[in-house]
Amino acid sequence: METLELLYEASERPRFGLPPALATAYGGELGFTLPCVYANFVTSIDGVVALGPEYQSSGSAISGREPADRFVMGLLRASADAVLIGAGTLRATPRHRWTPDHVCPEAAVDFAKFRRDLGRATQPELVVVTASGDLPTEHPALQSGALVATTVDGACRLDGRLPPACTLLTVGEGSLRMVDVLAALQVHGHMAVLTEGGPHLIGNLIGEGLLDELFLTTSPVLAGRADISRPGLVAGLELLPNRPAWVDLISVRRRESFLFLRYRLRIPRVPVGPQSALAN
């Protein structure tokens, strides 16, 4: 496993107690104040997190499959009760599994020990949110089992189509509010929720004041933009100049020219308007 160099870390952070091999590779400890919703993204220097709908596995292209980035992805998944993604992310990565060992198999034994030490299930539960119910039900991640959060109409569309290993969770009428999705996840015992997007899902979480922390890998690459949409971290939500979302830097780690940043968001919880409802 690649070792990260710790450049800065805020004092008095919660600590899970990582197994020694994981603590060495991460360059220190990791922990969250529960309940916690935290996001993990990789971005190019010019702020691109997704290359466009015609490109699969944008994150791998942006990171260059950097081993240290894949280790951090695995570690953050290993820390979670559930991994929350939107339908667009599921469609964009047709062979992916949202498990720690899928992205970093060399740390699988240590990830498993870490989860046992935390009293967690063998793997974090995958949660897919879709208002419309438009999902690729043949996706291997769904075939392995997932919690699908949707609306009444979405549930009707998915009726009889989901793999037997999946559980359907109806949490909305015509639209989905993330506050309702997260409340349902807490009922299922999921207090540490990692989201890996996409940008519209992050926009919904920020819009409702529900995102607590952000892990952002800055990859030393320029992606560029031309005639196709290449979104940044947040889509579907305008913040500046009237609603700035300030953050506090918690830690900085480095592996060669890659930076691994951790932020705490200062966003106050706000009433949910029509613009924050998930529509895909």
Rank of each mutant, 00 (worst) to 15 (best):
residue 160 G to C: 05
residue 195 T to C: 03
residue 210 L to S: 10
residue 202 I to P: 03
residue 193 V to E: 00
residue 196 E to I: 02
residue 210 L to V: 15
residue 201 L to Q: 00
residue 186 Q to Y: 15
residue 161 R to V: 07
residue 170 T to N: 10
residue 175 S to T: 12
residue 198 G to E: 01
residue 198 G to F: 03
residue 169 L to H: 13
residue 201 L to D: 01
residue 162 L to S: 07
residue 201 L to R: 02
residue 198 G to Q: 05
residue 198 G to C: 04
residue 175 S to M: 10
residue 171 V to L: 08
residue 190 H to R: 03
residue 168 L to P: 06
residue 208 E to M: 12
residue 200 H to E: 13
residue 194 L to P: 00
residue 193 V to P: 01
residue 194 L to N: 01
residue 162 L to I: 03
residue 201 L to F: 05
residue 193 V to I: 15
residue 171 V to Q: 06
residue 195 T to N: 05
residue 182 L to F: 00
residue 160 G to H: 08
residue 173 E to S: 11
residue 190 H to K: 07
residue 179 V to M: 05
residue 159 D to F: 10
residue 170 T to H: 09
residue 157 R to W: 08
residue 198 G to S: 01
residue 190 H to S: 04
residue 170 T to G: 09
residue 166 C to K: 05
residue 192 A to F: 05
residue 168 L to Q: 13
residue 170 T to Q: 13
residue 204 N to H: 15
residue 172 G to T: 11
residue 162 L to W: 09
residue 164 P to F: 14
residue 192 A to Q: 05
residue 207 G to A: 15
residue 197 G to S: 07
residue 211 L to N: 14
residue 198 G to V: 01
residue 190 H to Q: 02
residue 181 V to E: 00
residue 168 L to K: 12
residue 190 H to Y: 06
residue 184 A to Q: 00
residue 204 N to W: 14
residue 187 V to K: 13
residue 171 V to T: 09
residue 207 G to S: 15
residue 175 S to C: 09
residue 173 E to G: 11
residue 207 G to E: 12
residue 183 A to N: 11
residue 193 V to G: 03
